[in-house]
Design a protein around this nucleic acid. Structure first.
Lengths: 105, 105
DNA sequence: CAGTATCCGCGGAGATACTG
DNA sequence: CAGTATCTCCGCGGATACTG
């Protein structure tokens, strides 16, 4: 479930960041959450990502401390996904990347 | 050869950047080149990436205008890979990502 | 609505051997 | 030294159906 890469031979620190951020959808999910899509269906609709992949990416991001689950209903238990402090620091970086892509097209 | 993703339904501009940067090895290759590994063997050795994948990524990066080939020997034809202006703009962004990963570990 | 469960295809990635 | 050529494995990602 949690995607694991084997880069022990690479002590490159960028590789550590890519361990969490390396999957294609991950940056898009983070930007979706940062723009107000906190719930599963909401993220899924705004991105069109497959549901099983979204489940996997959300779990990985929670495990990596980028997102945190916040219960908003007890019965039944329902969670929203919010950026942690660590996740919030990622947003401006992704915006830079976005601008870079926009600048050169 | 050139990896192609289908995200026409996503007009998200970040997706355009990820079209070039989305593959796992790509950021590491860019940082390797930016730190002086200009030649095939040199990049390959410093990263430990499979040769066929490196060939593919280099072609994609050249096609995407991030790297450019520079001939340094005529017989036989040998090329170095250097960052373009567009590629150079990526470096500080990747350094930010690197610092982000380092900060939270 | 928020997931979980399957099934499947494709391509990323590794390993290795070969060529100019 | 700089690739190209194969072969194989595996996991991402898509699609869809199902559950509480």
């Amino acid at each position: 479930m949690a995607p694991r890469k084997n880069f022990q031979h690479l002590d490159h620190r960028l590789a550590d960041a890519l361990e969490v951020m390396g999957e294609w959808w991950t940056p898009l999910i983070i930007m979706a959450v940062s723009s107000g899509a906190f719930r599963f269906e909401s993220i899924q609709n705004s991105l069109g990502i497959a549901r099983n992949i979204l489940t996997d990416r959300l779990n990985t991001l929670v495990a990596g401390g980028v997102l945190e689950k916040r219960m908003y209903t007890e019965k039944p238990e329902r969670y929203e996904y919010h950026l942690t402090a660590k996740g919030l620091e990622l947003v401006p970086i992704l915006q830079d990347l976005e601008r870079w892509g926009t600048r050169h097209n």
